[in-house]
């Protein structure tokens, strides 16, 4: 598929003053940002900064207290069902069924996204080919190495060609080579027009993103390309940028 010239400007996620409050505690405090089609958007922040809460709202799992947000053109407060059809989600636990085989996992997730049986068959074959896992297709997932599980989980998260894929710390516990390969898969997906919304703790990974935002105490304190942020904060590395911002945090991570 060819990349359209004006991809960059098509807004896929838009949040305006998005807020979530639990009692007196404001988990996410009026965040405003936009994410464009085909972009890799890094969503950074220390533990407890409010990343997960924000992500849950964008996935339609939690309704905002104030403000609004749209994902793939649908409102998170009122059209969460439609959002769910148009997003993929991969958690840090990889979320595969260990007692099911590779093929069974693919078919199950394709099935719950309502793909038709011929499409499921076709997708399964293509996916096994692409991941080079044909010989493992009937192996139980628990027997696979972590890196393979991770790649499989990602491929399954985008099996229904979603507009946005949310990746919640997708590379935890994986070795650097596999991480590198994993990022190549993300690039490939974004080249096909999917938008990737990634949270991570690895600052070297932040460099792979097109743009990143850094949350501190429920607010977005910085937003821009990695190069912009480094020059703005007079830093050599993203690590340094992050530390400069996160050091001022008042909340203790959980």
């Amino acid at each position: 598929m060819s990349k359209l010239a004006n991809n960059e400007r098509e807004v896929v996620i838009s949040a305006t003053e998005l807020t979530k409050q639990f009692g007196d505690f404001i988990a996410t405090n009026a965040i405003t940002f936009e994410v464009f089609r085909g972009e890799i958007f890094g969503f950074l922040g220390a533990n407890g900064a409010g990343k997960t809460t924000a992500m849950k709202m964008l996935c339609g799992l939690s309704t905002p207290t104030r403000g609004r947000a749209t994902v793939a053109g649908f409102d998170v407060s009122t059209e969460s069902e439609k959002i769910k059809k148009n997003i993929g989600y991969m958690s840090q636990k990889f979320s595969l069924y260990e007692d099911l085989t590779v093929t069974e996992n693919i078919r199950f997730y394709a099935g719950i996204y309502g793909l038709s049986i011929p499409v499921i068959k076709e997708k399964t074959a293509a996916l096994l080919q692409q991941l080079n896992m044909k010989s493992q297709k009937n192996v139980l997932v628990k027997a696979l190495p972590l890196g393979w599980k991770q790649k499989l989980a990602f491929s399954i998260a985008i099996i229904h060609d979603p507009a946005v894929v949310f990746l919640d710390e997708p590379t935890g516990g994986v070795d650097p080579i596999t991480r590198r390969e994993f990022w190549e898969m993300i690039y490939a997906a974004t080249n096909r027009g999917t938008t990737a919304f990634v949270t991570t703790h690895y600052m070297d990974e932040a460099e792979y993103c097109n743009r990143i935002s850094i949350m501190v105490d429920g607010k977005i304190e910085a937003l821009g390309t990695p190069a912009d942020l480094k020059s703005k904060f007079n830093s050599e590395t993203m690590d340094d940028v992050f530390l400069k911002l996160a050091r001022n945090a008042k909340r203790i991570g959980d």
Binding site: C59, L61, Y89, S91, I112
Partner: peptide, 14 residues
């Protein structure tokens, strides 16, 4: 516990 519930909830399954 395995985290699959999150994925299921983020899917179109009610």
């Amino acid at each position: 516990e395995l985290g699959t519930m999150e994925v299921l909830l983020a899917s179109p399954l009610r």
